[in-house]
């Protein structure tokens, strides 16, 4: 082993240690937040983790797999309704809501994947949106889910703040871990090859349909779980709030502002998005306009998002998914 190689390995090892220490400190601080922070701080970070989770999954689809979906609200709604129906109508425990919701979400994703994966680009995007809208109309006319009346989720009243926060924390951090591991795996390589040039990737042996499907099902599963928590936090669900495209708009904002195609992007984007919403509540009527102007300014200044800009400028790569050739 040459001296240079030894030095490089030493540097890499040192960087790895710094990363682990910083990550551990952050996780400890955030994981224990409800026990030392104020209720408001806990609630804000709870929202950050949930929005981070749906943003991370949208980034996985759009930023890495080239599947730009405008229909992620379908899975959020399925998650919320699973919890509501099973706890409110059948009196089952919350865990059943999560279990059934995740299964229904994945099965639904599997079913709709058959027609929409035959579409590409803008057609796929519009197809996912239409399916989510159709699901909304179906729910408002479906007696089993109480039409458009929806449900209060009274089981949520008794959940302590720290319990809901920790569940959201796990889901938020879990989304980072899932995406990072996925992208570091062989599947991650195929995803990026597919995103960059699906034709070339297919010629080189990448199984497009299978790769897309795995990615789509993982995102569906995690977004459904996140939807369960979003509506537990809200304790009330109606189709108009469950299947609103606002959820996907939030994802797009978070990812575009934070940096599409980066793992750090949705984290930064979620923090900014939730903070802005907290600040802008005091501007009734113009809050969305202000949000839009901020988004436009950031897109003009940093077209690749904040983390894309910082990564280019400072060569940062916090959640590195680069492969190193073993020597």
């Amino acid at each position: 082993m040459s001296i240079i190689e030894a030095k490089l390995n030493g540097i890499a090892s040192q960087t790895g240690k710094v990363k682990i220490i910083v990550a551990a400190i952050i996780l400890i601080i955030m994981g224990t937040l409800p026990f030392w922070g104020s209720g408001y701080m806990t609630n804000v970070f709870l929202l950050i983790f949930l929005y981070m989770s749906i943003g991370m999954m949208w980034n996985l689809l759009s930023g890495y797999a080239g599947l730009t979906s405008l229909g992620q609200q379908a899975f959020i709604g399925i998650g919320g309704y699973s919890v509501a129906v099973l706890t409110q109508v059948y009196g089952l425990s919350l865990i059943w809501g999560f279990a059934v919701g995740s299964v229904v979400g994945v099965v639904f994703a599997l079913v709709i994947s058959m027609p929409i994966f035959k579409m590409n680009g803008a057609y796929f995007t519009i197809g996912t949106w239409i399916i989510a809208e159709a699901l909304y109309i179906f729910f408002v006319k479906w007696e089993f889910v109480n039409y458009g009346i929806g449900y209060p989720i009274t089981a949520a009243y008794g959940i302590p703040m720290w319990g809901l926060y920790l569940a959201s924390f796990i889901v938020g951090i879990g989304s980072i871990v899932i995406v990072t591991l996925l992208l570091k795996s062989r599947l991650g390589l195929t995803l990026m090859a597919m995103r960059d040039d699906s034709g070339a990737a297919e010629v080189r042996g990448v199984k497009l349909y299978r790769t897309k499907l795995i990615c789509y099902l993982i995102a569906a599963f995690w977004v459904t779980i996140t939807g369960c928590l979003l509506f537990l936090n809200q304790a009330y669900i109606v189709p108009s709030s469950a299947f609103t495209i606002d959820w996907t708009i939030a994802c797009v904002f978070i990812v575009i502002i934070g940096g599409i195609g980066t793992i750090e992007g949705p984290i930064v984007g979620a923090v900014i998005y939730v903070f802005l919403r907290q600040i802008l509540y005091g501007f009734p009527g113009i809050s969305n306009i202000i949000l839009g102007i901020i988004a436009i300014i950031i897109i003009i200044v940093a077209p690749k998002g904040i983390m894309g800009y910082l990564n280019n400028k400072f060569n940062l790569d916090i959640f590195s998914i680069r492969r190193r050739i073993k020597r």
Binding site: T42, N233, Q234, A235, V238, S240, T244, D246, Q278, S287
Partner: peptide, 22 residues
Amino acid sequence: IKGDSESNATKASEIASKFVLD
């Protein structure tokens, strides 16, 4: 102090939480 729900249940919930906790 008033908060705008934007005719949306999710926003109403977030603002009510902010009023109580913040």
